[in-house]
Structures are given as C-alpha cells and as structure tokens.
Computed example of a mutant assay.
Amino acid sequence: METSPSLAGPFALGTFSSGAGPAFPGLVAGGRVLDLSAHAPTTRALLERWDDVLPLLREAAAAPAGEWRPVAELRVHAPVEPRQIFQSGANYRTHVIDLAVAHEPAGGRPAEQVRAEVAAMMDRRAAEDQPYVFIGLPSSVTGPYDDVVIPSWCTKPDWELELAAVIGRPAFRINPDKALEHVAAYTIANDVTAREVVFRRDMPEIGTDWLRAKNAPTFTPLGPYLVPAAFLDPGELRVTLKLNGEVMQDESTKDMIFGVARLVSYVSQTVELLPGDLVLTGSPAGNGLHHGRLLRDGDVMEGTITGLGTQRNRCRDER
C-alpha cells in the first residue's frame, strides 16, 4: 500500500489492516509498523490514556524489539474514529476574500470593492475574537488513500485541505492559554464540499446547509497518521494540495485568523471535547471555485501538510 514520507518526529500513530483481517492501531516509525492491538483496540483508546501512553510509544519507537512490519504491506485506514468533528469556517484570510469574489453575481460589485469589504469584515472578526465553527459527521470520514465518491446529485464538488487537531485530554470551558495541552496530535483532513448546496436559496434567511454540503460518505479523507503535537508547531506549517499533479493550494497556517488554541478553546465553551475528536482549522486559498475547476471523475487529489505526510485520493463519480 501507500507510504507517507516526511513525518515530523521519530514516530506517529495510525490504523492498519492486512488482507481480510481486522483493523488495528499501529506505531509508525522508519517506514515500519508495530501492532499495538495487545495494548488497546483502537487509536482512540490510546488517546484516552494519552499522558500515560506517549512515553511508552517513545520507548517502543526507539527499541528494535517487536514484530515490526513494512507499511507498504498494509492497508492504511483513517487514523482515528472521532466521536465529534468540529469544522472552522472562514478562517484563512485570503481564502475568504477569494470565495467572496467568486460568489459575487455577474454584474455585481467590482472585485476590488468586494475584497476591501471582506478584508474589513475579517479584521472585525479577529478583533471581536469570534471564530465560526460548525459540526461535521464522523460518517463522512474515509481513509487517506481511499476513493472520494461524488454523489449523483453533486454538481460542484470542491476540495478544502485542512490541518486537523486531534484531542487527547477532555476539554470543557478551557482558556486559550491551556488549550494546546488538550491536543494530542495533528493530522490532515480534506473537507470536500458540494458548493452548489452550501447556501439555501429556498431559505436565504436561514443561511448555510452544512449537512448536505459537507457530509456525504467519503467527503472527509483523513490521515494518513496522527503525529504527536510535541513534534511540530501548528502555526508554522505549509498546506499544499495538488490536483492531478498541479498545485492548487499552497499556503502557510500563518494565514489563519484564529489559531488552534483559540479554536479548541472556543469549541470547548459550548461542548466537551473528548479524546479522538477533531477540530478542523479551515482551508487556505486555492479551492476549485477560485480556480474555476471543480472535481471530476478520475481526478487525483494529493494533500500534504508539513510534517504530517501525504494523502492521495482518487475521485469517483457515483454514477
């Protein structure tokens, strides 16, 4: 199967299977995998004991003992099954401005006017310290090398590569200065979106329809691995998506309006974040709507974030 180079730190966690066998949690180090199912049935179970587990993982990664297997011999699944997924919208400055210009009706306001107005709105949001977060469904998650199936009703499928924070310690009503203590790891998510149903044209006063736009099966490719938070700085990462080998998104997480700590804290004011939950941090500029090129049957998306490896998904039309 696939391998994923350029991981930050000496090891990562993933979920794997061999042949028709059951999926198991695995420690990834040096292109090899150590089966951890004797210690926990899933990676989420490991995250539930993260403070105790992390030192043991460090020891295991440094030891030659154990039945290590090449990653290339295994199927790589989504690295964790979250209970809850929280998605940050409009969190990259340039991305939001580009989308506003793309959504402006023909004959509407000049592009420069739209850019100026949206930039002012983003500055106001940052000053008021109010992120925008909505809920995703775990049933939309698929593996880092699995097909993304475009539903028959979807006419404008688009990509949105994102950094995802993975919760370790439960978090409820925590302050931003403590929030990163509750993040166990980071991974890659592609928040595939049906653009034509984002806005409810039959009920414009209600606004957006995130259920249909974001949550079709396979619309959230995840992984390949969980890279411990201690191994990287989420504010200094490069988010890059290639479509059939051509770079479409290539932006630093520095362009985020609200960083990981602020987003995790914000979500925790309303709900309790649990081990294995995902907080997606928004997508940078360069989506298909901006390029005038949306996803088609046979397209291959390749998403990379510094230190987190690469996911690769082929698009398949349901029809």
Rank of each mutant, 00 (worst) to 15 (best):
P176A: 15
P22E: 13
E160F: 08
P204T: 12
T240A: 12
D52C: 04
W50Y: 09
T310R: 12
V197R: 01
A126F: 12
P55Q: 08
Y266L: 01
E67F: 06
D255V: 04
V183P: 03
K156I: 01
H291A: 12
R58F: 10
L46P: 09
V267Y: 00
M1K: 04
V114Q: 08
D51R: 13
V279L: 03
V267G: 00
G168Y: 07
R173W: 09
F86V: 01
V101D: 04
V28R: 05
P25A: 12
R169H: 13
G259E: 03
A78E: 03
L13E: 04
R49T: 14
Q113S: 11
R319W: 12
R109Y: 09
P284K: 02
A63F: 05
E251R: 14
R200A: 12
I135L: 09
D277E: 02
E48V: 00
A63N: 15
S6Y: 09
M203P: 00
A40F: 10
V80H: 06
R109W: 07
R75T: 14
R319Y: 11
L289P: 01
A63H: 13
L241Q: 06
R83K: 13
Q130P: 00
V28G: 04
M248W: 11
P79S: 07
S265N: 07
V149E: 05
I167M: 08
V300I: 15
E73M: 10
L211W: 08
L57C: 10
A40N: 11
V264S: 05
G136C: 01
R293D: 10
P138Q: 05
A119N: 14
Q269D: 09
Q311N: 11
A40C: 10
R58M: 12
R195A: 00
G107T: 11
E59L: 14
R319T: 14
P138G: 07
R195F: 03
D277A: 01
R124Q: 15
R109A: 15
P138N: 09
G21V: 11
D202G: 04
V271K: 02
E246Q: 14
V239G: 03
E272H: 01
P170W: 02
A194H: 03
E112S: 13
N287I: 01
E59T: 14
F219M: 05
G207W: 07
S6G: 10
G31M: 08
R49S: 14
V300T: 13
R173N: 12
V271C: 06
T253R: 06
V148T: 13
P55G: 08
L163C: 12
V141H: 03
E48Y: 00
F24G: 04
A213P: 02
G292V: 01
S4T: 15
A184K: 03
N287Y: 00
V300R: 03
I150G: 09
W50A: 03
V247Q: 11
G89S: 06
E2Q: 13
Q130W: 05
F16I: 05
A179G: 08
R314I: 10
E272G: 07
E196G: 04
A72N: 13
F231K: 02
E59A: 15
G21W: 11
K214G: 01
E81F: 08
H103W: 09
P41A: 15
G66E: 10
A40I: 10
L308P: 11
E302V: 15
V133W: 02
A20R: 10
A78P: 04
Q311D: 06
T270C: 06
V53D: 04
A229G: 02
E236Q: 14
G207R: 12
L36K: 03
R314C: 12
A171M: 08
G288K: 02
D147F: 09
